[in-house]
């Protein structure tokens, strides 16, 4: 056992050393927040690079990491990648071995991966489809429909407290972050188990630290004003479209140069 422990410490030390190179392309009130939360859970050092998502142009630096120009994007040494769920999975596998992601031969691994896919592959398309007012075919859609999605999520959670039971993993980060949005849009009416689950997620220290990073916003003044407007828009559904339009309009003169 002592030998095993010593090896574990060595592995962690070398991984923490390489973690100093972590660079996160980020903007407040976007899916980048769930990666900040993941990084905070893992206790890693990272640098945030603010991306102004209202500028139509993206820097070459960001596009090299995220071809659609979306945030979040991650740089970790030679690793350049995008997609919030993929990044959370990558970080948990690489730096949270056995704790934030079950190992490859752990019996929980399968269910863990299934729930890692659930936020981007099931919740988001099902919610978007419902808001868009078009019901697709739940038999052919991978995400079924909104009702099936909610039932599967609730049933999967069971008595909790986390999606894999007693163990908090990266899957709770992606589900929790998506759930915070669902809660804001009052989609959990009649589903107290899911509301409670999200409240548990929000009470975590790492979640609170990630929230503080978003609230502190970027350093430059115009970027901060914009982040404030976006945060207001995020909490008031009816204000979103006019706010986006206003920000687009304000941006326009700058883009002409």
């Amino acid at each position: 056992m002592p030998a095993g422990q010593a090896r574990q410490v060595t592995v962690l030390a070398s991984e923490v050393a390489s973690a100093r190179r972590l660079k996160l392309y980020w903007c407040p009130n976007t899916r980048a927040n769930r990666v900040v939360w993941m990084l905070e859970e893992l206790g890693l050092d990272y640098e945030t690079v603010h991306v102004d998502v209202f500028r139509p142009r993206r820097s070459d630096e960001l596009l090299a990491v995220s071809p659609m120009g979306k945030v979040p994007g991650l740089e970790d040494g030679d690793v350049r990648m995008c997609d919030s769920s993929a990044i959370c999975l990558y970080l948990a596998d690489r730096y949270g071995r056995g704790t934030f992601a079950p190992g490859f031969d752990d019996p929980d691994r399968g269910r863990f991966l299934q729930w890692m896919i659930f936020a981007p592959g099931v919740i988001e398309p099902a919610v978007t489809e419902m808001f868009g007012g078009s019901a697709g075919d739940p038999r052919t859609n991978g995400w079924g429909d909104f009702g099936r999605m909610i039932r599967a999520w609730e049933q999967g959670l069971g008595d909790g407290p986390w999606i894999l039971g007693d163990r908090f993993t990266a899957a709770d980060v992606t589900l929790g972050a998506t759930g915070v949005l669902c809660k804001r849009f009052k989609l959990f009416r009649g589903h107290p188990a899911l509301s409670d689950y999200i409240a548990r997620c929000q009470r975590r220290e790492a979640f609170q630290r990630a929230l503080a990073v978003d609230r502190a916003g970027p350093k430059s003044l115009p970027a901060r004003a914009q982040a404030l407007a976006m945060s207001a828009a995020a909490s008031l559904a009816w204000a979103r479209k006019p706010t986006y339009r206003l920000l687009d309009w304000l941006r326009r003169p700058g883009e002409k140069e």
Binding site: M81, D83, S85, I87, Y90, I117, E124, G142
Partner: peptide, 23 residues
């Protein structure tokens, strides 16, 4: 080093191709 990109593309079918096509 390929691990990151690999995971990113593993999410692309369920998370991007399918919802974009359905939409």
């Amino acid at each position: 080093p390929d691990r990151g990109l690999y995971l990113q593309w593993m999410f692309f079918s369920p998370g991007a191709i399918e919802p974009a096509t359905a939409e």
